[in-house]
Design a binder for these strands. Sequence first.
DNA 1: AAATCAACGGAGCGAATCGCTCCGTTCAAT
DNA 2: ATTGAACGGAGCGATTCGCTCCGTTGATTT
Lengths: 207, 207
Amino acid sequence: MSGRGRQAEAARNDRLLLDAAREVFAAQGAGASVAAIAGRAGVGIGSLYRRYATKQELQQHLCVLAMEQASEAAERGLAADDAWAGLAGYIGDCVAFGTGALAPLAGQIPVSERMWQTARRGRQLADRLVARAHQAGVLRADVTALDISLLMELFSRRSPIRAPGQDQAHRQRLLAIALDGLRAPARQPLPGQPPSQQEYEAPWRAG
Amino acid sequence: MSGRGRQAEAARNDRLLLDAAREVFAAQGAGASVAAIAGRAGVGIGSLYRRYATKQELQQHLCVLAMEQASEAAERGLAADDAWAGLAGYIGDCVAFGTGALAPLAGQIPVSERMWQTARRGRQLADRLVARAHQAGVLRADVTALDISLLMELFSRRSPIRAPGQDQAHRQRLLAIALDGLRAPARQPLPGQPPSQQEYEAPWRAG
DNA sequence: AAATCAACGGAGCGAATCGCTCCGTTCAAT
DNA sequence: ATTGAACGGAGCGATTCGCTCCGTTGATTT
């Protein structure tokens, strides 16, 4: 074991708890029990409630963290020289981390001001990433940043029935297919209207 | 109202019940309550239990029906002149119907002999559809029939947080992207190994 | 070595929700 | 007017939930 003393153990447990919570919510949805989370993290329920007063508080903290991770991934993507590699890397990172897996929490928890701010910053970065790819002509013209957000939301969900390793392998293959479909030029135009920002975030406003 | 008498109402209710059950399970997973299903169908709980002795029996019946619908979609696809149109139509039909949305039931209900038979027939038809697309050179060479099954499983899940109409519109746009990514020639090879039949159906064997 | 105490795991509480039963009501057919 | 099949939903016991509380552990201090 690394780290010495109870404080180090507490820090480790906090990490384990957050990772486990994200995976369990991603697989089972917002209704997952705190016992399932604590069990997967390998810690007691008491240790969970010493850090987060309620299940809801844990969920809010999880949302902020996930959006911050997404912003960092977007910054890495913008730092890449190649516009396509940057965008694909951003999408891959977010899907691997499970950024969009917390979408089922929308409407179930109040959205703090900090959450809106973090979301706004992440959206701006993602918009720049997408705009750059459009200008470089590597991203199909009829796809929007919100389409990509929905795509990541879809791919973020974990299978509730398969082993995590298998699930991850499957997801990477399917994501590679979707990424190929995102490249310009498009073979078949996208049907319907692109999603609007308002309808995208509406579920979060219904608290 | 169409139909006269109590028998007609019963037949209508049975349809409403099955449609509602598929949608609710697709959105909320296997843990969805029977009250939620009856409520969405607009019928009483008593009417549900007059037709299905247990929740489990309803789920099994739902699985058989979904797989039969998938087989019919595959037959329509094989009847199409164009190999790509046939495959794309099959995938689109299955996703629209929600064939793969019952995957979360795997491991939660015993698999009847009839379910295995129906599944086997559906798989044979899908294999032929995929093989024909491969031979015609319209489907990227590194994708297998099981990859496509997993893709349909992914796209079959309904959003638990958005209105069904919006969710459907989003899903069709994202599916169009994925279908573009399935076309030959591939721009980027798929990572990892293709899934095996054994690992694909393993969750169903763990009853 | 003894004392201290922060962090630990989990048994168990009341509340909520579950699958399912049971029964009074409705209404087309007799 | 009578029948009876199909109806909706209140409510049962069982289960599961979020959460509290407490005895235990072990690094640190005296």
